[in-house]
Amino acid sequence: MGLENLMSDALICLDLQVDDKTGAIHELADLMEADQRLKSKRKYIKAVMKREAESTTGIGMGVAIPHGKSKGVREPSLAFGRSQAGIAYDSLDGKPVNLMFLIAVPESSNDTHLKILSQLSRKLMHEEVRQKLLQMQTKDELYEILGDEG
């Protein structure tokens, strides 16, 4: 689904070290910054936190999708972090988060990228997709799992 436009191996972390929400968001944002995808990490994080303050993006089922739309973003990006131990995230169902997708969208973004993100969001609602993400061994598998049509 054109995921490679949004992410690269550099934006994937299969074993997040932190166990709290803010720490995890920062860790993934660091990956984005290192990959030249942000103009201003500070501005971007601010947008993400503002969105979190409205309501948590920990949607339950071990999934969180913090996201922010900000001038501090250079190009639309998606970072993925996984934590087998779980991250404390004040999710809707109160459970820790194992799968985290950090989404960065510039102030003006074209629809193609938004479409890709909307398809990603839909996929995450399926139990078998979440299971595969929890069990995958390599970064390549991520593209396969999320690229599956259906």
Partner: peptide
């Protein structure tokens, strides 16, 4: 960006599960 579509998918899955027909309009940033 995200919740709009997750909610749409969740409703579609749920409708299938309990045997109803559903059409979901998504009002997202697209």
């Amino acid at each position: 960006i995200a919740h709009t579509y997750m909610a749409a998918e969740a409703l579609e899955v749920a409708a299938k599960e309990i045997g109803h027909e559903i059409k979901v309009e998504t009002q997202g940033s697209i």
